[in-house]
């Protein structure tokens, strides 16, 4: 595992739960342009990217599929598997070769049900990822760079 993945999960989850989770991980090596999931599909898996980039996108008829956000090393791909009705809200596709840990979401959910401590740890981890994504989305809503604000690059005049 790359240090950066260890670090991210380490911040998010106590070591015993992290190790339990990683024990059921399956290492995958995906070609560029591999679709991981499509909006509306059944959310039965998720991934942690070890290397490479995954784009989250949205299908708009008659338009090039817009990329909402890209995810890279250490990032969690997919969270809809944790919340009913377990349906993907966006699509995901690899844009490079991607090496990742793939998880069986059904198995993880069962583990969460069996062990409340583990369940809480997973919930907290995914919750934290979600709060980051929400904050990032909000920051982009403001269109910071669109306003003239940028250091001493034109100042007040």
């Amino acid at each position: 595992m790359t240090p950066s993945i260890t670090l991210r999960l380490e911040h998010a989850m106590p070591v015993e739960h992290r190790e339990r989770l990683l024990r059921i991980a399956r290492e995958v090596d995906l070609k560029p342009d591999t679709r991981l999931f499509e909006e509306g599909g059944h959310a039965d898996r998720f991934w942690i990217v070890r290397d490479g980039t995954v784009a989250l996108d949205m299908h708009v008829p008659g338009r090039r599929t817009p990329v909402i956000e890209t995810l890279g090393t250490g990032d969690l791909v997919g969270w809809s598997w944790l919340f009913e009705p377990y349906v993907w809200q966006l699509g995901a596709v690899t844009t490079t070769r991607v090496r990742a840990y793939e998880f069986d979401a059904v198995a993880v959910r069962l583990m969460c049900d069996d062990d409340a401590e583990f369940g809480r740890a997973v919930g907290r981890w995914v919750g934290r990822v979600l709060s980051h994504r929400l904050n990032a989305a909000r920051a982009r809503l403001v269109d910071l760079y669109g306003s003239p604000a940028a250091f001493l690059s034109g100042g007040a005049g």
Partner: peptide, 9 residues
């Protein structure tokens, strides 16, 4: 490197 945002810039 200057961004034009006002009379002087």
């Amino acid at each position: 490197t200057i961004r034009s945002v006002g009379a002087v810039s």
